[in-house]
Design a protein around this nucleic acid. Structure first.
Lengths: 119, 119
DNA sequence: CTCTTGATTCGACGATTATCGATGTGGTGG
DNA sequence: CCACCACATCGATAATCGTCGAATCAAGAG
C-alpha cells in the first residue's frame, strides 16, 4: 500500500484552538459567536439526525443517498447538509456520481472540550 | 442517610440516559428532537455567553445581576435565561432579592458524551 | 402602605429559518 | 447527442426567533 512514510497511529493532530472548558473562564463575545454557530448547526432535529447518520456510518463517511431518508424532501436535506458544512462540522467530496460526507473530528472535539465541565 | 443501597463515591448519579456517542449509533427521531433542543439553546451567542458566565462563576452559581452585562436589554437577558432553563441546561433559585442560576451538570455531560467521537 | 430595586412577563416588530416544488448542474451510460 | 440519475440552487411562503419598551411581580427599606 502506501510507501514508507511514518505511520501515525492516531490521526487527528489539531483540536481547534478554541476555548478552554466553560468552567474555567467565560467566553469572549467573539468566541461566543463562533461556538454558538456550531451549536446552532446541531440545534435542528433533522440536521442532528443527518449528522448522526454520517458520524455512525461505517467507514466514517456516507453518501447523501445513504442518509437522506429522514422525512423531509431532498432539497431540504441538501439545505441542511450545506448548513452543517458551513458550520465546519462536515466536509464533502464528490466521487463520480455520488457526494460523500464525513465529520470534521477536530471541530466536534472542540465543542466537546467546551462542554467538559470536569476540568 | 439512605438505607443499605451501595454508596457511590462520586456524586453525580445520572448522566441523562440519553444517547451513546454519535459514532456508535444513529439517533432516533425522538432523541434527535430532545438533543437538538439542547444544542439549540446554546446556539445563540448571547445565550452561550450567559451560560459560560454561569458555568465559570465562582461557587458554580451566579445571580442575574452578576452576568446581565452582555450588550442586550435586561428583558432579553431574562428571556434567554428562560430558554436555557427550559432546555434543562440551567436551574434557578430565588433567595431573597436575587435569583441565582447554576448549570445542570448531568445534562451538559450528556451533550458532551454525545460529541465524544473517540468511543 | 409606599418607594425602590431585581427580575419576569407581555405585546409588537423585523429578521432569520425550515420547508417545498421547480429548475439547474454534473456525471454515467446508452 | 440524449436520457437518466444524484445532488445543489432558486424563489416563495409560513413559522420561529431575537429584541425592545412597557407593564407586572417579588422582596426588602423606610
Amino acid at each position: 500500500m502506501s510507501n514508507l512514510s511514518v505511520e501515525l497511529p492516531l490521526a487527528e493532530p489539531d483540536v481547534v484552538p478554541c476555548c478552554p472548558p466553560l468552567t474555567s473562564a467565560e467566553l469572549s463575545a467573539e468566541d461566543s459567536v463562533r461556538m454558538a454557530a456550531m451549536f446552532k448547526a446541531l440545534g435542528d432535529p433533522v440536521r442532528l439526525r443527518l449528522f448522526s447518520r454520517v458520524a455512525s456510518h461505517p467507514g466514517g463517511e456516507a453518501c447523501v443517498c445513504d442518509i437522506q431518508d429522514v422525512g423531509v424532501s431532498q432539497p431540504t436535506v441538501s439545505h441542511h447538509l450545506k448548513k452543517l458544512r458551513e458550520a465546519g462540522l462536515l466536509t464533502s467530496e464528490r466521487r463520480g456520481t455520488w457526494v460523500y460526507y464525513r465529520v470534521a473530528p477536530s471541530v466536534v472535539a472542540g465543542m466537546a472540550a467546551l462542554l467538559d465541565l470536569n476540568r
